[in-house]
């Protein structure tokens, strides 16, 4: 069976009922979607399937055959983070980071559909995601900032100095 992950077509050998999450993490080494509750209740496994946010822990792989799947690995391009990723760093929206991948993908879908910086609308889009660290305020701030098109000089935020993670300079 074939699925396209971040623009690259991949062959999958797992059985048809295997959740997409396990295919991504265990077979394809795509590690940004996290295995949290694994029963739909936390959101950290969220990926985009044909542009729509989906819980990868609940999706049998056979149901997404031929689909385009996007994960955090596919967000940055040409060494440049997306605006919402930059906003995440600027606003300190990640603490332990376990929820971040799921939030980023849900926020990406929200913003790609033209989502605004309205708090209630952001809450409706992200309401299925649990964060046990930040208290959500900074996450919502980051999404609202990205919705307003704000940009940041990250050298002056985050750790105060430039770091490179997986080839992307922060």
């Amino acid at each position: 069976m074939n699925i396209t992950i971040n623009g690259t077509s991949r062959i999958v050998n797992a059985g048809p009922l295997t959740p997409l999450l396990h295919v991504l993490r265990e077979e394809l080494d795509v590690l940004s979607p996290k295995a949290g509750c694994q029963q739909g209740g936390c959101g950290t496994c969220t990926v985009l399937v044909n542009g729509e946010p989906r819980r990868s822990c609940l999706l049998p792989i056979a149901a997404v055959e031929g689909a385009e799947v996007r994960t955090v690995e596919g967000l940055a391009s040409g060494g440049k983070l997306t605006p919402v990723q930059e906003a995440w760093i600027h606003h300190y929206a990640a603490q332990c980071g376990f929820c971040t991948s799921g939030f980023l993908m849900a926020a990406t879908a929200y913003l790609e559909k033209g989502g605004s910086d309205d708090h209630a609308e952001i809450a409706a889009a992200l309401g299925g995601h649990v964060c046990r660290c930040t208290g959500y305020v900074k996450i919502y701030d980051a999404v609202a900032a990205a919705a307003r098109g704000e940009s940041f000089d990250l050298a002056t935020t985050a750790a105060g100095s430039r770091t490179t993670i997986r080839g992307v300079e922060l």
């Binding site: 048809p16 009922l17 959740p19 694994q38 739909g40 609940l58 999706l59 049998p60 149901a63």
Partner: peptide, 26 residues
């Protein structure tokens, strides 16, 4: 019968449901 699977997929994965056949309707 697997519709969206939001209930059944975790139940099968955890072994709470052990059907011998599964019908996926997608």
């Amino acid at each position: 019968i697997i519709g969206g699977g939001t209930i059944l997929v975790p139940e099968i994965r955890l072994g709470h449901a052990r059907p011998s056949r599964a019908l996926m309707l997608h």
